[in-house]
Design a protein around this nucleic acid. Structure first.
Length: 726
RNA sequence: GGGCGCUUAGCUCAGUUGGUCAGAGCAACCCGUUUACACCGGGUAGGUCGGGGGUUCGAAUCCUCCAGCGCCCACCA
């Protein structure tokens, strides 16, 4: 017996060495697996972590689940590909770098210029990337590094440009002047789903524009009222019918305004006074009302820095200051009728926390409702050559079952989102990202990747990071080229990700994959929940409750960290992590270590029986049932149950009972019983190592490398145990 | 306003198509150090599975109502 077994299992002496053994074997690349060509493919892309920092427990959970599945599939004989990558996370990354520079050098991005800022970002990204890839290795992730992709690398750049061009040619990408979600803090537009609503207390003011104005209106944003062009009332509201169509002039806080009374069904007669001051340039709803009534849209009174642009006492004031000034003015003029406290949802930018200022801007959009002809379609319900829409692709892909949610309820969440989907704003006023391939000269515009000539100016904006992420399942496999990888591994079999990016990412991948290759991007969607701290709180920097997975692995071993994340964590539900939990699973790794020691020690001088006796055959059947259940569980992605069953059986059935009762047998006089039991124990150990390997790859491989009679050299590619159907 | 969930032992949660599903881990208490492991073993705890009603031969598991809690979406100014 290997002398190592005489001491407790030491993860820190083991993990790095074992990972190198795997990586050097070349079998992370499925094409190197024995008889690769005969194997059925299984593929999965890693949701690329943002290069903004280091891995957190959420990423660790994701890696643990995915690695467990891909190791299982590999052992089951699949040509298993797990494709690694990292994400540039445009806005988040640029914001981080800008902040650092602001702090250390007191410079903003304009002081540096576009080229210099991008250089700085590249340096930052390189550093983080190295750290993160090493962390993924530390997790034991059996990723095929030969296919590593980064959202901003050359191959992905080509895919993104190609995608933009094709969508533009199909008329799905267009440029439009309309209200956008402007983030004054990040100085960029963001899409609807990058908004986070925060409930805050606000005051609702009821006032009149002037003494002779007939209708009082209510607002939470008095400062925008200098941009009003109309008052809208509900068509059925009898109180105000007589005023509809009338026009009034007033000077509101030094600003001359012209107000027309219109009737529009978007107005709720029961809210406030039943009359809305219409501010087309600073409200989505109002912009649409203005559209319907042919009102002017160009009454911009707030700029991109959230400051007032009108002249008079409000000039240059921040919106918050302007609000107070307007309120004072209304009170002084006796125009204020009521002030009441209300709570309202305020829109903030997910990445920067800035309060969104709706502003009209000329931006690029993806039209999800426009019809186009999908020339090639493998999506059930849409035939090749059918006219369809992006929204329909998203709907049919899931409705038809071509792609399924492992946790059924997320299907309804997904449909709910599609139903509310509006045009997707894809241009961002930042510098880090894929620059929009559009060129301008005077009032001419060309859409192409290469510059049309020296006197043409490229659009300064870059694409929403989710635009390129949406291509991920196929851009990583070589699209737009017709590669073998694409033919072999797409659609991918599984996507595994957190529920907070179903809309950002899952839906966009379905959209993009459907449009560009007429396929679903993946057959199954496994959604995992958030990892919370021991008190159930979200893990965040400000709370300082982050537990670093690699730190924990240094203390307790990565197998323990992985088990603590996976055990009892049902798909789609949040879980809690604590150091105590991790410590507990370290004990399990050691238990397995000692089980091995016991078996090797106690059976080394016994010649194994040819055949199991009846008692041992019964135990073998028990083990066989376990194999069946565990296999079935993992096949159905119930890895939380599979791991618990294994833990339970190995420790409390096998070690506590079977090994205990084996002691007298192995030391007894019955030679046949001894031989039979020795064989049972050796075989069962072999089976356990295989079954446990996907969950705790390091300790199982380490043991495997040290047992004398193993049939296959590397546990990582050993075959999954078979079982007899009852 | 719309949607999705949660409520099971002190704590954290499992419970897959309704029938050994009333469970696990941790914590607690008692006992044990005969050589695999003290990173251990044995034992103990009695939770009417949030509440009411219903379907069923049978429900934690399906339906309905009620009470708490959470999340997501939404242009109520």
């Amino acid at each position: 017996m290997d002398e190592k077994f005489l001491k407790p299992y030491s993860p820190s002496d083991t993990e790095k060495r074992i990972y190198e053994l795997w990586e050097k074997s070349g079998f992370f690349n499925p094409d190197n697996l024995p008889d690769a060509k005969e194997r059925e493919p299984f593929s999965m892309v890693l949701p690329p972590p943002n290069v903004t920092g280091t891995l957190h427990m959420g990423s660790a959970l994701m890696l643990a689940i995915e690695d467990t599945i891909v190791r299982f599939k590999r052992m089951r004989g699949y040509r298993a590909l797990w494709l690694p990558g990292t994400d540039s996370a445009a806005i988040a990354t640029q914001a981080r770098v800008e902040k650092n520079i602001q702090k250390t050098e007191k410079k903003n991005r304009h002081d540096l210029g576009r080229d210099e800022l991008l250089k700085r970002i590249d340096t930052f990204v390189e550093q983080n990337k190295t750290t993160m890839l090493n962390q993924m290795r530390a997790m034991g992730a059996s990723l095929d590094w030969s296919r590593y992709a980064y959202t901003m690398d050359d191959a992905r750049y080509r895919s993104v440009m190609e995608a933009f061009m094709r969508m533009y040619e199909a008329g799905l990408i267009y440029r439009d002047y309309r209200i956008v979600n402007w983030d004054p803090k990040g100085q960029t537009t963001i899409s609807d789903d990058e908004i986070v609503h925060e409930e805050r207390k606000a005051k609702l003011y009821t006032f009149r524009y002037s003494k002779d104005f007939p209708i009082p209106v209510a607002t939470t944003r008095p400062e925008t009222k200098v941009g009003d062009v109309a008052v809208a009332v509900h068509p059925d509201d009898t109180r105000y019918q007589k005023y509809v169509g009338k026009e009034y002039d007033a000077v509101f806080c030094d600003v001359p305004i012209h107000i027309k009374i219109v009737s529009d069904k978007a107005v709720d007669p029961k809210f406030g006074t039943g009359a809305v001051g219409v501010t087309p340039a600073h409200s989505q709803t109002d912009w649409e009302i203005a559209d319907r009534h042919d009102l002017p849209h160009d009454t911009i009174v707030i700029n991109g820095y959230a400051k007032m642009t009108v002249s008079g006492r409000l000039e240059g004031k921040k919106v918050i200051e302007a609000r107070e000034i307007v309120v004072d003015w209304l009170n002084n003029e006796n125009l204020m009728e009521k002030e009441e406290d209300v709570s309202q949802n305020i829109s903030t930018a997910e990445r920067t926390g800035g309060i969104i200022e709706p502003l009209p801007k000329l931006q690029w959009w993806v039209d999800v409702d426009k019809q186009f002809v999908l020339s090639h379609s493998e999506i059930p319900g849409i035939a090749s050559g059918d006219a369809t829409t992006l929204k329909e692709i998203m709907r049919k892909s899931v409705e038809s079952g071509a792609t399924t949610f492992v946790t059924e309820r997320y299907k309804r969440v997904y449909f709910n989102w599609i139903d509310n989907l509006r045009p997707w704003c894809i241009s961002r006023q930042i510098w880090f990202g894929h620059r929009i391939p559009v060129w301008y000269k005077n009032d001419k515009m060309k859409v192409q990747v290469e510059s049309p000539g020296t006197d043409w100016e490229q659009d300064p904006d870059v694409l929403d990071t989710w635009f390129s992420s949406g291509l991920w399942t196929f851009s990583t496999l070589g699209w737009p080229e017709n590669t073998d990888d694409l033919a072999t591994y797409h659609p991918t079999d599984l996507i595994e990700t957190a529920y907070d990016i179903i809309f950002f990412w899952i839906a966009r991948m379905i959209l993009m994959s459907g449009f560009f290759i007429g396929q679903v991007p993946f057959k199954h969607i496994y959604i995992h929940g958030l990892v919370r701290d021991v008190k159930g709180r979200k893990i965040s920097k400000s709370l300082g409750n982050n537990i670093d997975p690699v730190d924990m692995a240094d203390k307790y071993g990565m197998d323990a960290v992985r088990l603590s994340l996976v055990m009892g964590t049902a798909p789609g539900t949040d879980s809690r992590i604590s150091e105590d939990k991790i410590r507990g699973y370290k004990h399990f790794a050691n238990k397995l270590w000692n089980i091995t020691r016991f078996i090797l020690e106690r059976t080394k001088e016994i010649t194994l029986a040819e055949k199991l006796n009846d008692a041992d055959a019964n135990i073998h059947r028990e083990v066989s049932n376990l194999i069946q259940e565990v296999t079935d569980d993992i096949d159905k992605y119930r890895i939380h149950l599979a791991s618990e069953k294994l833990y339970q059986f190995v420790w409390h059935r096998f070690a506590d009972e079977i090994l205990e009762e084996s002691k007298p047998i192995l030391m007894g006089d019955d030679k046949d019983a001894r031989a039979s039991r020795a064989r049972l124990l050796r075989e069962t150990l072999d089976i356990f190592l295989r079954l446990l390997h996907p969950f705790m790859p390091f300790v199982t491989e380490e043991i495997w490398q040290r047992i004398p009679d193993r049939s296959e050299k590397l546990l990582m590619i050993a075959s999954w145990p078979s079982y007899h159907k009852e």
